[in-house]
Amino acid sequence: MIRVEGAVALVTGGNRGIGRAFVEELLAQGAAKVYAAARDPRDVEIGTPVRLDVTDPGQVAEAASACPDVNLLINNAGYHANQRLVLTDDHQAARDEMEVNFFGVLNMTRAFAPVLGANGGGAIANVLSVAGMVPAPFMGGYSPSKAAALWLSTISRAELEPQGTQVTALIVGSVDTRMAAHVDGAKENPRDIARAGLKAVERGENVADTDWMAVDARARAARDPARYERQLAKLLNAQTLRTTK
């Protein structure tokens, strides 16, 4: 199992939100170095800036070459288009969400697997969502893309086990970030999510809920899946009514 203290980490989307919180928490817990990756490295205010668009294979390869000492990869970069999946005028939105949330994670995992293996195995943490555990109709293509990344986490764990690389899927609820600015209700502090996520990595957990909302949503879905699905559909319709008034 990997320890945060002394680790060399790379965080995608490390310039804001949960990504920045991971960078801050890693440094606070004694990580030796933290690469903060962003499309525009000028946006990075803490950590070692790295230019990286996870949907660009060339930039991903450059990052893997430029950061050969990484033993902890945190795939945090995400995209939520805030569009419906079927009844939408923007048919590109779901593809864009899949490109970042699934293929971006796959790109990074493929590129950094040899790096992690060369550095003793290390660990990968995929920052996912409760919307990837249970279908969330009000989150359009975001929910399917996070579900795909969840299965990717399981498959990656099996493939990379021989080289000693652990893979942890972090199930995140509602967090106080720019991506969730349109969401009503209580939201978690990003630093609390990062703290819980790093604990799960150090414990070597396969799948870990990072907050109360994630735990509660998964429990309610498990108790009565049909009822939970109806509640989510009602939430979608209620949102639609608010936006069309």
Rank of each mutant, 00 (worst) to 15 (best):
M1W: 03
E5N: 15
E5P: 06
E5G: 14
G6N: 03
A7I: 07
A7S: 15
V8M: 06
T12S: 14
G13E: 12
G13Q: 10
G14P: 06
G17E: 09
G19T: 15
G19E: 15
G19P: 15
G19V: 14
R20G: 04
R20N: 07
F22M: 12
V23E: 11
V23P: 11
L27T: 07
Q29V: 04
K33Q: 10
K33I: 02
Y35K: 03
R42C: 07
D43G: 12
E45N: 02
I46P: 00
G47P: 04
V50I: 13
R51P: 00
D56F: 09
P57M: 04
Q59V: 06
Q59K: 08
Q59H: 09
V60D: 02
A63W: 08
A64W: 04
S65R: 15
D69R: 03
N71A: 03
L73Q: 04
N76C: 14
Q83E: 14
R84H: 07
L85I: 05
V86C: 05
L87C: 04
D89R: 12
Q92F: 10
R95H: 15
D96A: 10
D96I: 00
E97I: 10
M98K: 01
F102A: 05
L106R: 12
M108Y: 06
T109N: 01
R110P: 00
F112R: 01
V115R: 01
L116P: 00
G122P: 01
G122Q: 01
A123K: 01
A123S: 05
A125I: 05
N126Y: 03
V130E: 13
A131Q: 13
A131T: 15
V134K: 06
A136L: 09
F138Y: 13
G140C: 07
S145A: 15
S145P: 07
S145T: 07
A148Q: 03
A149S: 15
A149K: 11
W151L: 11
T154V: 04
S156R: 00
A158M: 00
A158L: 01
L160T: 00
E161S: 00
P162V: 00
V167L: 02
V167F: 00
I171A: 10
G173D: 07
G173E: 07
G173T: 07
S174Q: 11
V175Y: 10
R178S: 03
H182I: 08
H182Y: 06
V183Q: 03
D184V: 12
D184L: 13
E188F: 08
N189C: 08
N189M: 09
R191F: 10
I193P: 09
A200F: 04
R203N: 10
G204M: 01
E205Y: 04
E205G: 02
V207M: 03
V207K: 00
T210R: 03
D211C: 14
W212R: 10
W212H: 07
W212D: 06
A214F: 05
D216Y: 07
A217N: 05
R218C: 09
R218D: 09
A219H: 13
R220M: 09
A221T: 05
D224M: 06
D224Q: 08
D224A: 10
A226F: 13
A226L: 15
R227G: 14
E229D: 13
Q231F: 05
L232E: 15
K234V: 13
T243F: 13
T244Q: 14
